[in-house]
Nucleic acid binder design. Structure first.
Lengths: 146, 146
DNA sequence: TATTGTTATACTCTATAACTATA
DNA sequence: TATAGTTATAGAGTATAACAATA
């Protein structure tokens, strides 16, 4: 296959794939558990669980929001007992945030519920399609991290 | 494969796939063209192009926003000359919205730019992965529309 | 003087309720 | 009386600017 054709094919695939991925993502997002938490709070809590104890500033950087926004996001999580804060051992300006046991438990439940919609639909697919999706998930991870 | 194992495998695949899809969707979203339009405006414009002339109420229903919100979204698009409105031929309460030539052109440019990031990355993948993605896009469409 | 986190304030987006014109 | 669209108003969520505490 000549280079020009290959490239044109890639662009067509990129377009089709982008639309399919965005559409599925929309459907997945709409299935999120009916929680009292906002999307930002849920995302911040999940990142906190993944990173372990970090300062509000660091968490804000990871979530790509400004520090004052993270102050508000975390305040809500703390009020609900999902996040705990301890003083930084050596720098008294800083605090360290962690997901509490309740926070981790909420994340677990939420993921389980969000997976339910998708796994329900996967059950209706033939085995070949499941294989395709299994391989695609791996390729996606390579794509997103590149 | 026994039913219980099949089910457990599906749940694991659902979880992996959900995470991969959401992550790739985040990356794709962040690549969107630096437009003066909001995400809602861009989405409404795209839907308008797809559906053809429709009333504000119908467009609001498709975009899953309330009519007053669509009034504002469309007002901005109209001010920028991306959407045109004509009176409904028989019902004088209604108006019909369409994407203007400028609106269609903007959509074309935007899609092209948003595809660039992905197709750039697709170029680095081996042909087998491209086949996988091509099949996965089709499966996704079936999933999202189910 | 620089850095971390918070408070004060404003802007964007969306919603519900009330209103106007037409059916 | 019901419906389509708009205007009025309020509530999230996030941003920038100003401030307090600590390094």
């Amino acid at each position: 296959m000549p280079a020009a054709t290959q490239s044109a094919t890639d662009v067509a695939l990129a377009s089709a794939l982008r639309m399919s991925v965005m559409r599925l993502a929309r459907r997945l997002r709409s299935q999120r558990a009916d929680s009292t938490l906002s999307i930002s709070q849920l995302a911040a809590l999940a990142t906190l669980e993944r990173l372990g104890p970090v300062s509000p500033g660091e968490l804000a950087a990871h979530e790509k929001v400004q520090p004052p926004s993270m102050t508000r996001i975390v305040a809500g999580l703390e009020e609900s007992g999902l996040v705990t804060r301890v003083p930084h051992p050596s720098d008294r300006r800083q605090v360290l945030l962690s997901a509490s046991a309740a926070g981790k438990s909420l994340l677990r439940d939420d993921r389980r519920r969000r997976d339910a919609w998708l796994s329900q639909r996967l059950r209706s697919l033939p085995p070949e399609d499941l294989s395709t999706l299994r391989e695609a998930a791996a390729v996606f991870d390579r794509l997103a991290s590149s």
